[in-house]
Write a protein that binds this DNA or RNA. Structure first.
Lengths: 203, 203
DNA sequence: CAAATGTAATGAACAGTGTTCATTAATTGC
DNA sequence: GCAATTAATGAACACTGTTCATTACATTTG
C-alpha cells in the first residue's frame, strides 16, 4: 500500500502548503485583504483547489489561530521563567504586550477579528486554553501565597488578561491617539502601565 | 432666496435620512453585513445617490461613530452622578460595561472594527475625547484626594479604560468561552470583575 | 410660456470578493 | 491497454464598494 501512503503524504503536504502560505499572507496583509484567489495564485493553483482542502476561508483562519496560540504559549514559556511568582507574572504581562505589539496582524487574527464561531469555540478552548492556563497557573502561585489583593483565581486571571488585551487592542485600533502621546512612546507606556497595574494589586 | 434655502434644507434632510438609516442597519446587522445597496434600497434610492452625500462607506461609519460617542457620554452623565469620587468611578465603570453589553454592534463599530484612519483620528479626538475626559475628570477627583494606589492620572485613565474595554471586547468576541461559565452569568461576572478591580486599586 | 441651464438621481459597468460545480486531466487498479 | 477513481480546473453565481455617462427634473432666463 505504498501508493495510498504517498497520496496521504501528498495530501497533508498540500494542506500544509496552503496553511503556511495563508498564514504568511495573513500576517503580511491581514486576513481581510488576503483573498482566496491570491493565496491560490501564490501557490500556483486554481482557487477551487483550496476548497478541496479547507471548507472555507474561516477554516483557514482557525488553522492559523491554532498555530498562533502555540506561538504565544512558546513566548510565555521562553520569557516567563522566574521562580519568583510575582516576577513571573510581570514577565507574562510583558511578554503578552510585546507579542501584541510585535505581531499586530497575528494578534488581530487571534483576538479581534470577527469570524463566525462554529468550530471556533472548540479550537479556542483547546489552543487558547493552554495560554490562559499558563496565566492561571502563574496567578495561582501568587494568590495562594497571598501576594495579591485579588483572591478569586479565575476572576483575577480574567482581569489581568482583559487589561493586557485592552491595552494592546486599543493601541492596535489607534484609539490611544486621543491621549496626546508620540507614536514611538506608546510601547513603553503600555508596558509601564501593565507593570504599574500589577504593582497596584500587589500587597 | 427661498429656493436655495429649501434646497439646502432638503440636502441636509437627505443626508440625515441616509445617516439615520445607516445607523439603524449597522446596529441591527453590523457594519460589514450592511451594504450600500441595502441602505439605498431601504430609503428607496439608487446606490449611486448615497455617494452624492457621503464620500464612501467609511464616512458613513465615522458619522455613526460620532453619534455613538455622544450616546456613551450621555450614559456617563446619566449614570455617574454620585458626589463620592470613588462611587462615581464605579458608576462610570458599570455604565461603560453595560453600554458594551447592551449595544454590542454599536460598541463594535466604536472600538473594535477596523477602518482606515483618515479623518478618523480627528473624529475620535473630538468625540471620543469627551468620553475619555469624563473618565479623566472622575479619576482626577480620586487621585487628588489620594484614594487610589495609582498616581499618574493619564496612565490610570488608560488602565481603567483598557480593563473595561478588555472585558467587553473579549466577551464580544466569545473569547471568554475558555472560562467555563454559563452564558447568562457573564454580564454579572464582568461587572463584578470591574468592581473588584477598582476595589483592589483603592487604598 | 418656451427654451436653456443647472443639478439631482439613476443604474449599468468595473473590479473585486467567497464559493460552487460541471468539466477536464491525471493517476491508479485490473 | 482500459475502466475507475481521484485531483484540479476555471467559468459561473451572487455578492461587494465605487464610478460615471446618461437621464429626468426643477429652476432661471429670454
Amino acid at each position: 500500500m505504498g501508493v495510498t501512503d504517498r497520496k496521504e503524504r501528498e495530501k497533508t503536504e498540500m494542506k500544509e502548503l496552503i496553511r503556511a502560505t495563508a498564514m504568511k499572507m495573513f500576517l503580511e496583509d491581514g486576513y481581510a485583504k488576503t483573498s482566496i484567489r491570491s493565496i491560490a495564485e501564490a501557490i500556483e493553483y486554481s482557487p477551487g483547489t483550496i476548497y478541496l482542502y479547507f471548507k472555507d476561508k474561516d477554516e483557514l483562519l482557525y488553522e492559523v489561530q491554532g498555530k498562533a496560540y502555540g506561538q504565544l504559549l512558546e513566548v510565555f514559556k521562553r520569557e516567563a521563567t522566574s521562580t519568583d511568582p510575582l516576577e513571573k507574572l510581570r514577565q507574562v504581562g510583558r511578554a503578552y504586550i510585546n507579542f501584541g505589539l510585535q505581531n499586530p496582524e497575528l494578534y488581530d487574527l487571534m483576538f479581534i477579528i470577527r469570524a463566525p464561531m462554529n468550530v471556533d469555540e472548540e479550537i479556542h478552548k483547546a489552543n487558547g486554553g493552554n495560554c490562559f492556563a499558563f496565566l492561571v497557573d502563574c496567578l495561582n502561585d501568587c494568590i495562594s501565597r497571598n501576594l495579591l489583593r485579588l483572591t478569586d483565581l479565575h476572576q483575577a486571571s480574567l482581569l489581568i488578561w482583559s487589561t493586557a488585551h485592552g491595552l494592546v487592542s486599543l493601541n492596535l485600533r489607534c484609539r490611544l491617539k486621543i491621549m496626546d502621546q508620540p507614536e514611538e512612546a506608546i510601547p513603553e507606556i503600555l508596558i509601564k502601565s501593565m507593570e504599574d497595574y500589577l504593582a497596584a494589586v500587589t500587597i
